[in-house]
Every structure is written in structure tokens, then in C-alpha cells.
């Protein structure tokens, strides 16, 4: 039963979602709102399981002085600090208002740390591009050439070379080359991927609704 009940719920909910796409009338049109509300409620309870799991593992690591235990200590201190400040010292339910201690930590610790991680992307894009654009074979060389024209066509110097210096006809300006690459082959490739994804989602959904794919349901 532990396996069958979740499979039946999954199938019923899946079919209701499909039904809703074609039937806009109430109460059918409210199905997704109801399920979203339920999901939100379950999520709210489940967050405690996650938080407790994080604390349990971190405390055990510190208590047993496992390798790199000091990082876990930072996690525990950070968690406890934001939790205590948020609950007890930040105007209760209005903790997200400007000027609370919670928002002070958010603005001066969390936000800069988050931005720092995001900023790392700039460096990672450079290193990944360097590897991706090395002309190791035919495909990589085509990628390199396409990237070269698109990048150059997207900055003013691209058109300056083809328009001002070489005085080429309009269709040979680098900005037009870049637009062509982005609008024709790139869009075609993206659409092919999107059609494949849509079919993949449909196939997966059917497998789950019909109970053929049941890996995500425990059997014992």
C-alpha cells in the first residue's frame, strides 16, 4: 500500500492537471491553485527537516572533531545567529522591515556574500570560454568562428571595421553577420532543443502517471 497510494495520488493529480489545460471552467480552473497551496504547506513543514538535518550533521562534525570541522562551526554560528536575531530581536512578524536587526544582517552580510558568489561567474565564464573556443577539431573551430563574429558584431568596433574602414556593402557588416547567426542557426537549434524537451516532459509525465516509472516511490 505504501507504494500504491502515492502512485494513485500521482496519477490522479497528473490527469487533473492535463484536464485543466483544456477545461477553463471552474472548479477545474482552480486545480493548480489548490495543488500549489498544498505543495506550499508541505514545503513549509519540510523545511524543518532540512534545517534539522543540516544542524545535526554540523553538530556531529564539530563534536567529533572530524576533518574540516571548523566550517561546520561557522555554519552553526551563522544559523543560530540569524535564527535568534530574526525570531527574538527583529520586531516579530515585521522582521523584514527596513531597519530591523535581521535586515541589517541580510543587507550587510548575506547580500554581499551572495553577490560575491554571483560575481565569480564573470571569471568562470572567461575560463570556460577559453576552453570551449580552442580550435581542437572541426566543430570547435566552427564554434570559435561563430563566437568571434557574434562578439565582434555586437560591439561598435565590429561595424567600424566593415562599414568605415573596409566600406563593405550593408549585408557584409559584422552586426548583420552576428544577427544572422543569432536569429537563424541559433534560434533553429534552440527550438529543436525545446521541442525535444517538450516531448521528453510528456514522455516522463506519461510514465509517471501510468505508474511505469516508480523509482521515486519507496516500496517498503
Amino acid at each position: 500500500m505504501k507504494r500504491e497510494v502515492p502512485l494513485i495520488i500521482t496519477a490522479v493529480v497528473g490527469i487533473m492537471y492535463i484536464f485543466q489545460y483544456f477545461v477553463p471552467h471552474e472548479p477545474v480552473s482552480r486545480f493548480s491553485d489548490w495543488f500549489s497551496d498544498w505543495f506550499g504547506i508541505i514545503q513549509a513543514f519540510a523545511i524543518w527537516l532540512g534545517a534539522l538535518n543540516l544542524m545535526k550533521l554540523s553538530l556531529l562534525k564539530v563534536a567529533r572533531r572530524k576533518k574540516d570541522w571548523m566550517y561546520s562551526l561557522v555554519t552553526i554560528i551563522g544559523f543560530a545567529a540569524i535564527f535568534i536575531v530574526g525570531i527574538f530581536f527583529s520586531r516579530g512578524a515585521n522582521f523584514q522591515e527596513p531597519g530591523t536587526r535581521f535586515m541589517f544582517i541580510y543587507d550587510n552580510v548575506y547580500d554581499p556574500l551572495s553577490s560575491t558568489m554571483f560575481a565569480l561567474l564573470g571569471f568562470f565564464v572567461a575560463s570556460a570560454s577559453y576552453r570551449a573556443f580552442r580550435a581542437r577539431n572541426k566543430e570547435a573551430t566552427m564554434l570559435l568562428l561563430a563566437a568571434f563574429f557574434v562578439m565582434l558584431g555586437r560591439v561598435p568596433v565590429g561595424d567600424m571595421i566593415t562599414k568605415e574602414w573596409l566600406q563593405l556593402p550593408h549585408w557584409l557588416w559584422l552586426s548583420n553577420w552576428a544577427d544572422w547567426v543569432m536569429n537563424i542557426p541559433n534560434t533553429a537549434g534552440q527550438r529543436a532543443i525545446m521541442i525535444g524537451i517538450a516531448l521528453g516532459i510528456m514522455s516522463t509525465s506519461l510514465r509517471i502517471i501510468l505508474g511505469i516509472e516508480r523509482t521515486f516511490v519507496s516500496g517498503d
Binding site: 570556460a128 570551449a132 525545446m194 525535444g196 524537451i197 516531448l199 521528453g200
Partner: peptide, 24 residues
């Protein structure tokens, strides 16, 4: 299946399942 992230994975990973291949 997030098409915008595929180029990053292709550049950084040894193998990448593109879109539908994830579901298969």
C-alpha cells in the same frame, strides 16, 4: 532541460545530456 545553462555544462563537463536526453 534549461536551455540557457546547456552551453555552460557543455563547456565545463565531460558529457552533457541535452534537454530530452535527461528525461530519457
Amino acid at each position: 532541460a534549461n536551455a540557457s545553462q546547456l552551453p555552460f555544462f557543455v563547456a565545463a563537463c565531460d558529457y552533457t545530456l541535452i534537454g530530452e536526453e535527461l528525461f530519457a
